[in-house]
């Protein structure tokens, strides 16, 4: 073997030191994206850790918490006024405080998601092109009204009072629904949520998809991060956008192939252990008196919000 070693491998580097450069490296977009993926793993870990803590809200049975979630999401969707929405928001906030959750971290996520899936989605409806009404913020004045497809574009375009109110309502509904979901998710271990959904007669196929997707998300994120590290270990400069796109395309194809293979293997493993389209659950105990009390209190508070 020794005689076969190529001569270039016997060469030593010309210098043991380097000249400090003046050019710094920018963190490329792809690297930032990968860090985001890594954060997904961290978030998952934090969910597992915070869900295992001990507080008043953590101790409530998962079935009560899932029913509470569904009931309150319905209430949030039915309310048509800002005040009850704000009061519900305050109620969720106080529950989060009692559950000793990381309020700042959770609300950052709530605001981020609500901005994209609430505010931005609803924003076009604030304009008088979609929602008619009194213009409170004029934006553009045209020489004359136009007709485009099914829309009548008026001479003056602006945000209407009714439209603005609609955007605020939708955003606050999304915010409250997200905050409720995070509250339950971060105070209940994931297997408990699945067990509660099973008890509440959610179809097995749906539960299976949630469970496997949840697990695969972490495997996927870990693989993506590892692939990125492998590339980083051989990267000695900045990558141009074309190369970065090529690498991403190649890796997506690889992940797709790997996912398909893993999916087949997991299904074979499930079949070999007797999988028969049914999720079997165990250890479903009776509800304690404290769970019933909490359930009744939540129900009464919910009715109060409905009545408002």
């Amino acid at each position: 073997m020794k005689s076969k070693i190529p001569s270039f491998l016997l060469e030593r580097p010309s210098s043991d030191s380097f000249t400090q450069g003046s050019v710094g490296l920018k963190i490329p977009f792809i690297e930032k994206g990968i860090h985001h993926v890594a954060n997904v793993i961290k978030t998952g870990y934090i969910q597992w850790e915070t869900a295992a803590r001990d507080s008043f809200f953590h101790r409530i049975d998962a079935r009560i918490k899932v029913l509470f979630l569904i009931f309150f999401i319905v209430i949030v969707s039915l309310k048509n006024d800002i005040l009850p929405e704000a009061l519900i928001g305050g109620f969720i906030f106080s529950l989060m405080t009692i559950a000793r959750l990381n309020i700042v971290g959770l609300y950052k996520r709530v605001f981020f998601l609500a901005f994209f899936f609430g505010f931005l989605v609803a924003l076009p409806s604030a304009f008088n092109v979609i929602t008619k009404g009194d213009i409170i913020i004029p934006v553009l004045r045209l020489s004359r009204p136009y007709r485009f497809w099914i829309y009548q574009i008026p001479g003056e375009i602006g945000i209407t009072r009714e439209g603005f109110y609609g955007v605020v309502m939708l955003t606050s509904r999304v915010m409250n629904s997200l905050a409720l979901s995070f509250l339950v998710l971060y105070t209940t271990p994931f297997p408990e949520i699945i067990r509660a959904l099973k008890v509440l007669r959610v179809p097995d196929g749906f539960l299976m998809i949630i469970t496997l997707s949840y697990k695969y998300m972490f495997i996927f994120a870990k693989t993506v991060e590892d692939m990125h590290l492998a590339k980083k270990s051989r990267l000695a400069g900045q990558v141009n956008n074309v190369d970065a796109r090529g690498w991403i395309a190649g890796r997506i194809a690889f992940m797709f192939k790997k996912t398909r293979l893993r999916c087949e293997e997991i299904f074979k493993a499930m079949q070999s252990r007797g999988f028969s389209d049914n999720i079997k659950i165990y250890g479903v105990g009776q509800l304690h008196a404290s769970d019933w009390i909490a359930g009744v209190i939540f129900f009464l508070i919910g009715v109060l919000f409905l009545w408002m």
């Binding site: 580097p13 380097f18 000249t19 400090q20 450069g21 050019v23 710094g24 490296l25 693989t223 590892d226 692939m227 590290l229 492998a230 590339k231 270990s233 051989r234 990267l235 000695a236 400069g237 900045q238 690498w247 190649g250 890796r251 690889f254 790997k258």
Partner: peptide, 26 residues
């Protein structure tokens, strides 16, 4: 590592073979 020169100096001198070859070959 934010220094381009150092990055090239270091990567050219230290090589890493991952346990899982699948992730290394891209």
């Amino acid at each position: 590592f934010r220094d381009k020169e150092f990055l090239r100096f270091f990567r050219g001198r230290v090589g890493y073979v991952f346990q899982d070859s699948d992730i290394q070959l891209f």
